[in-house]
Amino acid sequence: MQDQKNGNGLEWKVLKFEEFTLDELYDLMQLRSQIFVVEQDCVYLDQDGKDKKALHVLGFKGNKICAYARLFNKGDYFDACSIGRVIVAEDERRYAYGHTLMNESIKAIKEHYGEDKIKISAQKYLKKFYESHGFIQKGEEYLEDGIPHIGMLKE
């Protein structure tokens, strides 16, 4: 596990699945369901069996998870390292934690996997956000769980 404070006031942790406390895991699953199922009105199974392989980047304000992403080594999800399930709690979005979350995630991939190449499956409406972090669209738009997505790559 890696803990650190950053200038925006969040405490950042990078955890393996088995390092979660029960409370952290419950709160994370609740946050992911709130955003991906309820807020985005998308019925799908968020617990996809991949969390046990992933590294998890969490931004905490006190005990509250405000930001989250999961990371995969190359070959565990895509042929390159990847970042997914990128979320910021709705009531925390005004603080631009999404940008800090992406920076922390990119840094964690470099530190834990030794890689610079990262592939993502991005919701299309977030294209400019991911471009601001060096990602470039690769391929055509496609639907994933009824939501328009694009493949993006950072090299």
Rank of each mutant, 00 (worst) to 15 (best):
T100R: 05
F20V: 07
E140S: 12
G84A: 14
K13I: 11
A69G: 06
D23C: 06
E115A: 12
W12I: 06
W12F: 13
K128R: 15
D79C: 14
K107F: 09
G49R: 02
C42W: 07
I87L: 04
D41L: 10
Y68T: 00
I147T: 04
D27N: 09
E144V: 05
I118M: 14
K117L: 10
Y95G: 14
D48P: 00
M102N: 06
L58P: 11
F17I: 04
T100W: 01
L143C: 09
P148W: 10
K74W: 08
E18M: 11
Q137I: 15
N73S: 07
N73G: 08
E39L: 04
H99R: 07
Y97H: 02
A122I: 14
I147Y: 01
G49N: 02
K124S: 09
G98A: 06
M29F: 15
K127Q: 14
K107N: 05
Q30Y: 11
E144T: 07
F20S: 13
L58I: 15
L71V: 03
E39K: 10
S105D: 02
R94G: 12
L45G: 02
I83L: 15
K124H: 08
L15W: 10
I147V: 04
I87H: 03
Y26V: 01
G49W: 00
K53W: 08
Y26M: 02
I106N: 06
N103Y: 02
H56E: 08
G134A: 10
D46Q: 09
R32K: 03
E155Y: 13
D3N: 15
Q40S: 01
Y113T: 05
L31V: 01
I87F: 02
S82I: 11
L143Q: 05
Y95E: 12
V86N: 02
N6V: 05
E19L: 08
D79I: 08
I150C: 07
I106V: 14
K128P: 07
I87Q: 00
N103R: 07
K16W: 04
Q30D: 14
L153F: 11
W12R: 03
V86R: 00
K110I: 04
E141D: 12
G59M: 03
F20R: 08
E24L: 12
A67W: 00
N63K: 13
N6E: 10
D23N: 11
L10K: 04
V57L: 09
F17G: 01
N6M: 06
L10S: 04
E131Q: 13
D27V: 07
H112F: 11
L10H: 05
E131M: 10
K5S: 14
Y68L: 00
G146M: 13
I87R: 01
R70N: 00
G98Y: 02
L25E: 06
E92L: 00
A108I: 07
F129I: 09
R70F: 02
N73M: 11
